[in-house]
Simulated scan of single mutants.
Amino acid sequence: MQAAFLRWAPPALGLASCALLILIAATRPLPDWSVLLPILSGPFGNIFLGIILDALPFMLMGVILSSILHLAVPEHVIRRLVPKNPVLGIMFACSLGLLFPVCECGMVPIVRRLMNKGMPVYMAAVFLLAGPVLNPVAFASTLMAFGPMREMAYARMGLAFAAAALTGLCLYRYAVGSPLRHSLAGQRGEHVHSHRSFLEGVLRHGSDEFFEMGKFLILGAGVTALVQTLVSPASLSAIGHGGLSAHLFMAGLAYVLSLCSSSDAFVAASFLPAFSKSSLLTFLVLGPMIDFKGTLMLLSVFKIRFVLILSLIAGAAIIGGALVLDWFSSIF
C-alpha cells in the first residue's frame, strides 16, 4: 500500500497542479508581460540569452557524461586507472582535458562523479581547472580569434597547464579530507535497479544534475549580463598597460564576465590595442578556471573553504605566470 502510494502520488499531484494552473489561467486575467520586452530585447537580454545558449550545450554534455560515468564505469576501474604517483596523476588529469571538449559549465558534474568513483582531490582539481582551457575547442577558437598571432594560443595552453599542475601539487601536499558537501551515494535516485534500461538511467541522472546546476548558471548569467550592460568597454583601456594593475583588472573582468572558454578568445582579442598580450593571457586562462557562474556551481558541490583555497592558489599561479611571461615579452 505504501509503495503504491509513493509510486502514484507524484504524478497525481503533478496532474492536479496542471489542472489548477489551467483553471487559474481561464478564470483570471494574465499579468502584462509586455513591460519586460524592452529588457529582454535590449543589451541585457541579448547578453543574458547569449551566455545561456553558449553554456547550455556544454553543460548538457557534462551531465550526460557524468551519468554515463556513474552507470557504466565501476569504482574499481577509476581506482585502477588513476596513477599512484602524484606527478603522473597530474599529467594524467591534464591529458583528460585534451580528450573532453567540455567547458567549465559541464566540468563540475563530471568532476564530482569522478571523485565519488575514487579520483583523488588533487587530480580532480587539475582536471576541473585545465579541462576548459586545454580542450581542442578552446584551442581552435583562440587560434581563430588571434589570427596570425598563433603564439597566443600556445601560450594560453602552456600557462593553463602550468597553473593547473601547480595547484594540483599544492592540494596534494595540503588538502585533507573530502571537499564535497555530501556524497552522491545516498542521494535520491542514485541506485539504478536492474529492470531499468541504461538509457532511462542516463536520462534520469542527467535531468537531476541538469536542474541542480542550471539554477546557478541562470543566476550567474543574469549577474554577468548586468555587469556587461552597465560597464562601458571604452572605460577599460585606461589601465591596459599598467603592469600588475592590468593583470589584476583583466583577472577581475574575466571573473565577472564569466564567458565560455569556447568564445572568450574573441572578446580578449577585441582588447588587444589597449591591453598587453600577457594581461590578455590572464583573462584567457583565469576566466575558464575561475569565474562567477562557475563559483556558484562549485559552491553547490564543494565546501566553501575548498572553493576559496582552490581559487586563491589558481589565481595566484595564473597571474604570477602571466607576469613571468611579461618579463620575457620578447617571445611575443
Rank of each mutant, 00 (worst) to 15 (best):
M144I: 08
P132I: 15
G14L: 14
G214W: 01
G158K: 00
F266K: 06
A175M: 10
L6H: 10
K277G: 15
P57G: 02
G320C: 08
S141T: 12
G168H: 07
G206L: 03
S263W: 02
A165K: 08
L219I: 12
A268F: 01
L253M: 10
H205M: 05
G252W: 07
S141C: 00
E200L: 12
H241V: 11
P273M: 13
C103P: 00
M123G: 11
M213E: 02
T167L: 04
G222I: 07
L180T: 05
A12F: 11
W327M: 09
C170Q: 06
G220L: 11
L230S: 02
L128P: 03
I331Q: 09
A160K: 02
P11W: 07
K84P: 04
T142V: 05
A254V: 08
S263N: 10
L65G: 09
L13R: 02
G320P: 00
F283D: 08
A130I: 07
R204A: 11
L325V: 12
V202N: 07
G321T: 05
T27F: 10
I331D: 03
H205T: 08
L312R: 06
F306V: 04
G168A: 03
A175V: 00
P86V: 03
V73A: 07
L169C: 09
L236Q: 13
L259S: 03
I39L: 15
A155S: 13
H205D: 12
G177W: 06
E104I: 10
H193S: 09
D32T: 10
A140W: 05
S194G: 01
I51G: 06
V301S: 06
H195N: 04
F127N: 02
G206E: 06
R112W: 10
Q187W: 05
L65I: 12
H241C: 14
R181P: 02
V108T: 13
D54C: 06
L129Q: 05
M123T: 02
V87D: 09
M250C: 08
